[in-house]
Every structure is written in structure tokens, then in C-alpha cells.
């Protein structure tokens, strides 16, 4: 029954209005404009992806605005196995900010974290708008820092799934019980000592009251 489902905590970073939430909404809903129903109350969105024999469950954390005044908590980065650093290819300032976030991730996050640098809004360029961040420049940063690199359009969906599949492929998969030893490498995959508070008692009551 538990044939290798691996949860991956993925955090989003990037300047305001670069479309980081839109990329995620596109990914989890595959529908950019009409179906914007976020996962209720969870404060992170989830999506499953099959990669070969494996099912990867992405647990995608939004900053909830706490990055605006440099107030992200250590909890946000903790045990994140992957990060999307998003910028807008028509806004150079957002690329500078992306460099900052990459640096921040190297300082704050787990050592083995997989970071994808994502240049969003390629649809603007395709429809005649001006590109302000050269692809080469971003590729160079990605190479220097060991990042995955994609250019996407959350609006058309171009390359969006590829970002997540690319991350999924880079995460060392395997049976969860083999992975628990990875803790010291900075990446948590499962943890036997962990207790699910919602699995009984008041939690069960809260969850069973309404099964909408």
C-alpha cells in the first residue's frame, strides 16, 4: 500500500508579483485562470507526481507574505528538500532579488536542497514584449550555484510541469524506510519518531465533524 510515496517539501521564493504563486497554482490545478481554489486552510498546497515507479508528493509552502519585511521564520526553510526561486524575465530587479534568495537558501536551508531557478513570464516575450534578463545570464548563475534552470509561463503553462518533474528526478528517491538515515545529510524524508496529532483524540473529532 505504501509503495514508495515520498513527500518533498518545496518552498517558494522570489520578489512580489513575479508569479511564484501562479506557477504553483498552474501546477496544482493545471488551470491558470478559472480554477483558483487553493487548498483550504492547509497553508501549503500539495500535488502528486508519478516519476517512474515512484509517487512524489510535493508539499508546496508559500511565504504567506512573511518575506516582505525579511521576516521568514527558520521553520520555513527547515527540511525543505527543494526550492523554487522565481524571477520575472521582464524585470531585472527581480533577478537581482533571485540572486539574494539563492544566497539566503545556501545559508539557511539544508545542505542537500535542490534549487530551481525559474524565469517566469516568457509569454510576454513571445507576444512581442521586451526581455530584460538574458537567458545566458540566468544560465550562468544556475551553473555557478548548481541550480536547475527553467524559463516558464504560468499563463500558458509552458514548462511549468517540467520544473516540478525536474526537481522530482533530482531528489534521491527510494523506499521511505531506507531514507530515514538521510537526516544527517540534512534531508528528512520520513521520521519514525514523529507523531501525527490529528490521528486521534481531539484531532479526530475536528476532522470528522465535517467531511465537506
Amino acid at each position: 500500500m505504501n509503495s514508495g510515496i515520498t513527500s518533498i517539501k518545496l518552498v517558494l521564493l522570489g520578489e512580489a508579483a513575479v508569479g511564484k504563486s501562479s506557477i504553483v497554482l498552474r501546477f496544482v490545478s493545471n488551470d491558470f485562470t478559472e480554477n483558483k481554489e487553493p487548498t483550504i486552510g492547509a497553508a501549503f498546497l500539495t500535488q502528486r507526481v508519478n516519476i517512474g515507479e515512484q509517487t512524489v508528493k510535493f508539499e508546496i509552502w508559500d511565504t504567506a507574505g512573511q518575506e516582505r519585511f525579511a521576516s521568514l521564520a527558520p521553520m520555513y526553510y527547515r527540511n525543505a528538500q527543494a526550492a523554487l526561486v522565481v524571477y520575472d524575465i521582464t524585470k531585472p530587479q527581480s533577478f537581482i532579488k533571485a540572486r539574494h534568495w539563492v544566497k539566503e537558501l545556501h545559508e539557511q536551508a539544508s545542505k542537500g536542497i535542490i534549487i530551481a531557478l525559474v524565469g517566469n513570464k516568457v509569454d510576454i516575450v513571445s507576444s512581442g514584449g521586451e526581455r530584460k534578463v538574458a537567458r545566458e545570464e540566468a544560465e550562468k548563475l544556475a551553473e555557478e550555484e548548481g541550480l536547475l534552470f527553467f524559463e516558464t509561463s504560468a499563463k500558458t503553462g509552458e514548462n511549468v510541469n517540467e520544473v516540478f518533474l525536474g526537481i522530482g528526478e533530482k531528489i534521491p528517491l527510494g523506499r521511505p524506510d531506507e531514507q530515514s538515515g538521510l537526516q544527517n545529510g540534512g534531508v528528512r524524508i520520513t521520521d519514525d519518531q514523529r507523531i501525527d496529532l490529528a490521528s486521534t483524540g481531539s484531532g479526530a473529532v475536528a476532522a470528522s465533524g465535517c467531511n465537506c
Binding site: 496544482v28 493545471n30 480554477n35 481554489e37 486552510g41 498546497l45 502528486r48 518533474l165
Partner: peptide, 17 residues
């Protein structure tokens, strides 16, 4: 209102997802 991660409805994936 959701027990776990209530998914976005109408998610209709052909391939990997």
C-alpha cells in the same frame, strides 16, 4: 472543511501528474 490536502478539483492530468 478538509481532512487532509483536499485537492484542487477538476485537476485533469494525462501523464505524469
Amino acid at each position: 472543511g478538509d481532512d487532509d490536502d483536499v485537492p484542487i478539483h477538476n485537476a485533469n492530468y494525462e501523464n505524469a501528474i
